[in-house]
């Protein structure tokens, strides 16, 4: 498994049967590929779908929130944007999975602007992290060696103290009231290596091997 697959596979284990889930663009989208068949997960797409499905190659006008062709599952619904954000802001989404440029130990997230460089805009991300019951950040642990998990975000925030779980190719971390807990570490890395790649202060009590990683050599 590559880094992206490790992250997506681990996050898929957080999804519970019957959950209504919004997946962001990039690594988060891959999570759908790893949901076990015994669970029924309903995906929401903020442009207006309850029951988002993969592109079936049909001639239709259905797109996902990234503007790519998609489909709708049986029993699904098309909704307008106000209803879509009633789901999102109103606390009706169980889990949202998003990427980020930076996250900090208090759970604040930066993902929509690098001043003077890149201004893509926030799209629906600010509403998603504010309103979803659980916010999972899916991202590479560092940006080519540059730390992304900080004591305090440096970039302008998407939201203040909203992230619950951070999953990278190296580890799984949970934001709790007393700080950022290291829960699981990918056996390919040591706790020291994780700490060296992290600026945030990690609380290390009981660390387990990271789940969801298929070791192809042993398979």
């Amino acid at each position: 498994m590559n880094d992206k697959q490790i992250i997506a596979s681990r996050i898929a284990m957080e999804l519970k049967d019957g959950d209504l889930v919004n997946l962001g663009i990039g690594i988060p989208t891959l999570v759908a590929n790893y949901v076990s068949e015994d669970k029924e997960i309903i995906f929401q797409s903020e442009n207006g779908i309850i029951g988002l499905g993969a592109d079936q190659g049909e001639d239709c006008s259905i797109v996902n929130a990234g503007g790519m062709k998609a489909s709708i599952c049986k029993g699904g619904a098309f909704i307008d944007s106000a209803t879509s954000f009633t789901f999102i802001r109103g606390g009706h989404i169980d889990i949202t999975v998003l990427g980020a440029l930076e996250v900090d130990q208090e759970g604040s997230i930066a993902s929509w602007i690098i001043p003077g460089k890149l201004v893509p805009g926030m799209g629906g991300a600010m509403d998603l992290v504010t309103g979803a019951k659980k916010v999972i950040i899916a991202m590479r642990h560092t940006n080519k060696g540059k730390v992304k998990i900080l004591k305090k975000c440096r970039l302008p925030l998407t939201a203040f103290k909203q992230a619950n779980l951070i999953v990278t190719e190296m580890c799984v971390m949970e934001v709790k009231k007393d700080g950022l807990h290291l829960l699981e570490v990918n056996p390919a890395y040591t706790i020291e290596e994780v700490m060296n790649a992290t600026d945030a202060e990690l609380i290390v009590d009981e660390v387990k091997p990271m789940r969801g990683i298929e070791n192809e050599n042993n398979a």
């Binding site: 944007s81 106000a82 879509s84 954000f85 999102i88 799209g123 629906g124 600010m126 509403d127």
Partner: peptide
Amino acid sequence: MNEEKLIVELVPQGTLVE
């Protein structure tokens, strides 16, 4: 926007529609 030929006001999507 960078050339100051266009003013852009970015609004969170849910806020914009509401």
